[in-house]
Simulated scan of single mutants.
Amino acid sequence: MATAHSPTLRLRRLATRLRRAREEAGFTSSQVAAKFKWSAGKVSKMETGETKRISAADLDLLMDLYEITDQAERDGMQALARDARQRGWWSKYKKVFSDRALPDFEAEASLIRTFEAQLIPGLLQTPEYAEALLKGGRLTDSETLQQKLDARMARRTILTRASPARLRAVIDESALKRPIGGADVLRGQLAHLLYMAQRPNIDIQVLPVEIGSHAALCAPFTLLEFPDPLDLPIIYIDTAADGLFIEDPDEVEAHSATFGDIQGSAVSTARSATIITDLIKSLEQDT
Rank of each mutant, 00 (worst) to 15 (best):
V170S: 06
V170K: 06
V170Q: 08
I171N: 04
I171A: 06
D172M: 02
D172Y: 01
D172V: 00
E173V: 01
E173D: 01
E173Q: 08
E173F: 00
S174N: 08
A175Q: 04
K177F: 11
K177H: 12
R178T: 05
R178D: 07
R178C: 13
R178M: 10
P179V: 01
P179E: 11
I180Q: 12
I180C: 12
I180D: 08
I180M: 12
I180N: 13
G181Q: 14
G181S: 14
G181N: 15
G182D: 00
G182H: 02
G182C: 04
A183L: 11
A183V: 10
D184Q: 14
V185A: 12
L186D: 10
L186H: 05
L186I: 07
R187H: 10
R187C: 12
R187S: 15
R187T: 15
G188D: 10
Q189D: 15
Q189N: 13
L190Q: 05
L190R: 04
L190Y: 01
A191K: 15
A191S: 15
H192R: 14
H192G: 10
L193D: 07
L193M: 14
L193A: 06
L194E: 11
Y195H: 15
Y195I: 11
M196E: 05
M196F: 05
M196G: 04
M196V: 07
A197T: 00
A197H: 01
A197I: 00
A197M: 01
A197G: 02
Q198T: 00
Q198Y: 03
P200M: 14
P200L: 14
N201D: 09
N201T: 08
N201L: 06
I202F: 05
I202R: 09
I202Q: 06
I202G: 08
I202D: 03
I202C: 10
D203A: 06
D203H: 01
I204W: 02
Q205A: 05
Q205M: 03
V206L: 10
L207K: 05
P208Q: 12
P208N: 13
P208M: 09
P208G: 08
P208L: 11
V209H: 04
V209K: 07
V209F: 06
E210M: 14
I211K: 06
I211M: 07
I211F: 02
I211W: 00
H214E: 11
A216R: 07
A216G: 09
A216T: 04
L217G: 13
C218I: 12
C218Y: 12
C218F: 10
C218K: 15
A219K: 12
A219S: 13
P220K: 12
P220M: 10
P220F: 11
F221T: 01
T222P: 01
L223V: 07
L224H: 02
